[in-house]
């Protein structure tokens, strides 16, 4: 075999294969998202935020821990802002120097989150005033969690991800159960099942990733 120039051929078939694996993995890293940075901050926000809501606004108006009435929501929103920042940083870093289909998928999906919440938020905000106070909180929470669930289900169709589908379906189920059980219980379910579920998924994906790399 005549080389077409001075670029030396790999020393052996094994070295060829090693080079192929090395470069494919390097590119896969560029294209993949970091599951811990993507799921963990949202899981923590829900676990703590909805957890505090449950402790302060328990089922039947019970107060398990006499926290200041503003504290749970302020904590939830502050943690969600941090989570959103983390998501935006992760998404911007992902696919640096990559153009084409996947960057369009990511951009459209990110915008879809904002548009979904703009529509759902304005509708809920218009009608929530006709409800008693404890049902108002429940309406905001169940509409938000339901929207998040739908976005993950849509994401599973875009990235052919079974994990995202399971997450979206699970959030839908606990959301429906929480609505049926009523205010207080919904917060507990979303804190433990939703926040816990997001954290569990982030950790599972990160461990799977590590095992794959050996």
């Amino acid at each position: 075999m005549t080389p077409v120039d001075d670029d030396a051929p790999p020393a052996s078939p094994a070295e060829s294969l090693a080079l192929i694996r090395q470069e494919q993995a390097a590119v896969a890293d560029t294209v993949a998202i970091n599951p811990l940075a993507y799921y963990l901050p949202w899981g923590v926000a829900w676990l703590i935020g909805y957890g505090l809501l449950f402790l302060r606004y328990g089922p039947g108006g019970r107060i398990f821990v006499p926290l200041p009435d503003w504290l749970p929501l302020v904590t939830l929103f502050a943690l969600m802002v941090l989570a959103m920042t983390s998501t935006m940083v992760v998404s911007a870093r992902r696919g640096r120097g990559v153009q084409g289909r996947s960057s369009w998928q990511g951009t459209a999906y990110g915008l879809a989150w904002f548009l979904a919440f703009a529509g759902v938020g304005s509708t809920t905000g218009r009608f929530v005033r006709y409800l008693p106070a404890d049902e108002q909180g429940l309406l905001w929470a169940c509409v938000s969690v339901g929207t998040v669930a739908v976005m993950y289900l849509a994401g599973s169709a875009i990235w052919l991800s079974r994990d995202m589908f399971v997450l979206g379906a699970w959030l839908t189920v606990i959301n429906i159960a929480g609505v049926a059980l009523g205010p207080g219980w919904h917060s507990l379910l979303i804190s433990a099942g939703g926040g816990g579920g997001l954290i569990a998924l982030g950790l599972t994906l990160a461990m799977r990733e590590r095992r794959r790399r050996g």
């Binding site: 075999m1 670029d7 030396a8 790999p10 080079l19 470069e23 390097a26 590119v27 294209v31 990559v98």
Partner: peptide, 16 residues
């Protein structure tokens, strides 16, 4: 079958 070009081909093959 040359180191530099194999690496380029492998990297591009890893793109979606």
């Amino acid at each position: 079958h040359a180191q530099a070009r194999l690496r380029i081909m492998a990297a591009l093959s890893g793109l979606p």
